[in-house]
Write a protein that binds this DNA or RNA. Structure first.
Lengths: 148, 148
DNA sequence: ATAACACCTAGAGTTGACTCTAGGTGTTGA
DNA sequence: TCAACACCTAGAGTCAACTCTAGGTGTTAT
């Protein structure tokens, strides 16, 4: 069972441009072409595309994904490099989630503040009302920076 | 109290290039210049920079940040637009965190798998060992996509 | 047999967010 | 006074990841 590039566009949601671009960048070294040069994707290729999506979602750049694929093709001698890659990614994702949690608190504070501001018609509450000042103090190192 | 661009570079970690670029893009509409054209940042400007950092961290593009600053300068008539902005951001951040949680699981699976693969010297465990197959099934819709 | 259609390549263009270069001005310490 | 230094502007360059264009080929339905 093989698939045309149009089939793969429908299956993956990626554009044909993107699929060709990935190939040019070395992300799909196995895609076969028929006698007249038309791509015929295998199920194996589709599995690679799923993995590529996952790695991309985790924040890897295309050249890093290519590196992973090259390691995969070199076989068991590169197992430890691949392990490092996933370890590093996991650590980076942990940091990213921590970062997002902090940002989320700040944005939530702003949402709460503006919800009340819309209700009363002005923003003075941010600097006047005890409850907002206390919230700011809890959320921010230097609270006054968040009156903007 | 005012600060030169060099002072602000030290305080914020942003480059002088970036600070001038932000100004060009309308993110710092209040920065004063002295008679010979040299920027003198105020404490107010520094507070804006903190806010800009926060909005940038939350994923806003520079033109969206400019829009927010314009709304701020227009006063209370734009309170509800600003509320929407923070609401939308909060929702986007929630989605982003959910997305990262899913990705994290997949990357953790890979890390675990490769840790064992490095120990035994090959990757066959992924397709042979019951515990990895079960983990895959728990984590992925179509588990075989993650043998790459 | 011809028009429509899906596909191909090489290479140019786009977008966002910087980052740098060239050429110049203003201030300050030896 | 003159060299070092921090600063200025306009505009060009960079980078990643696409996205598109131009010009062409191969297949299929009428």
């Amino acid at each position: 069972m093989t698939y045309s590039i149009g089939d793969v566009v429908k299956k993956t949601g990626l554009s044909a441009y993107t699929l060709r671009y990935y190939e040019k960048e070395g992300l799909l070294p196995f895609v076969k072409k028929n006698a007249s040069g038309v791509r015929a994707y295998s199920d194996e290729d589709l599995r690679w595309l799923t993995m590529i999506e996952c790695l991309k979602d985790s924040g890897l750049q295309i050249k890093e994904i290519r590196q992973y694929i090259e390691w995969f093709n070199e076989g068991d001698s590169t197992l430890s490099q691949r392990l490092s890659l996933f370890e590093n990614r996991r650590k980076i994702l942990e940091k990213e989630m921590a970062r997002l949690t902090v940002v989320m608190n700040k944005i939530r504070y702003k949402e709460l503040l503006y919800r009340e501001a819309v209700r009363v018609g002005n923003l003075d509450i941010a600097t006047n009302e005890r409850r907002f000042m206390q919230l700011k103090k809890k959320l921010f190192e230097s609270p006054d920076d968040f009156d903007k």
